[in-house]
């Protein structure tokens, strides 16, 4: 099955990102296709490489990056939501005159159209939110 995933909450405060990760991993291991993981609302905070959780806790951001690399996942962060919350890639940081970027490996910034497109292209769009 071709599956799209929407993550609507940030890391740690809510279970959503953990559940989405476990779902995506399990789906891939079962041989399903993950068409795209789209990060919206506070979900964009899953894409900052500046998180540094305590060593005995899971690193939610790195975990996404590693899974993304292993399966060549399309992990998309909404640009409007990212701008509001200070998530930037190199291009966006330059464009906005910011001194640095913070996007983690494997994520890319794009528009909301990518979410709607996932809804159109996938057999299922699965939401993880509050």
């Amino acid at each position: 099955m071709k599956i799209g995933v929407l993550v609507s909450e940030g890391p740690y405060t809510h279970q959503a990102s953990d559940s989405a990760y476990n779902f995506v991993k399990a789906a891939l291991e079962k041989g399903h296709e993950i068409y795209r993981v789209f990060f919206y609302h506070d979900g964009v905070n899953n894409a900052t490489r500046f998180t540094e959780p305590p060593r005995d806790d899971r690193n939610i951001v790195n975990r996404w990056s590693e899974l993304g690399k292993q399966y060549n996942l399309d992990m998309v962060v909404c640009i409007a939501a990212a701008q509001r919350r200070g998530i930037m890639d190199e291009n966006e940081a330059k464009r906005q005159g910011k001194s640095g970027d913070n996007i983690a490996e494997g994520f890319r910034i794009s528009g909301l159209g990518q979410l709607v497109e996932a809804g159109i292209q996938c057999d299922r769009l699965v939401t993880f939110g509050d």
Partner: peptide, 19 residues
Amino acid sequence: TIYALEGLEVVLISAAFEQ
């Protein structure tokens, strides 16, 4: 919360996809 406002942004974008 921001859900209503950001939700509306998705709705407006979806209009461009003729769904």
